[in-house]
């Protein structure tokens, strides 16, 4: 029955779809300025802020669509949007 009905058997498979290719601008983090408030994580629509052990470790460029919300919401201006390919 697996794919015989319109039911998706495997969860979270959307990860296989790399929305990073949609991006025209790219967020670049300056970890010197980052205070790990994780606002970027809270407001990222695409689960593309990498957090390990409570620390912001970078951006998952495979899926980041480059919306710029993280950059706009960063209280320390630690994330800059640069033209894709110009960093």
């Amino acid at each position: 029955m697996s794919t015989a009905e319109d039911v998706i058997v495997e969860p979270g498979t959307a990860r296989k779809y790399h929305t990073g290719s949609w991006r025209s601008k790219k967020p670049v983090v300056d970890k010197e300025k980052c205070i790990n408030c994780l606002f970027c994580w809270m407001f990222c629509p695409d689960n593309s802020i990498i957090v390990e052990g409570g620390e912001m470790k970078g951006i998952k460029y495979t899926h980041c669509k480059g919306c710029g919300i993280c950059s706009r919401q960063c209280p320390k201006d630690a994330i800059t949007m640069v033209e894709e390919g110009e960093e």
């Binding site: 990860r15 991006r23 919306c67």
Partner: peptide
């Protein structure tokens, strides 16, 4: 654990997944 993953096709900057 993440309950709604990346790789969805909502517009860049959409508030819905947030």
């Amino acid at each position: 654990p993440v309950r709604l993953t990346e790789g969805h096709r909502l517009c860049a900057g959409c508030a819905e997944p947030i």
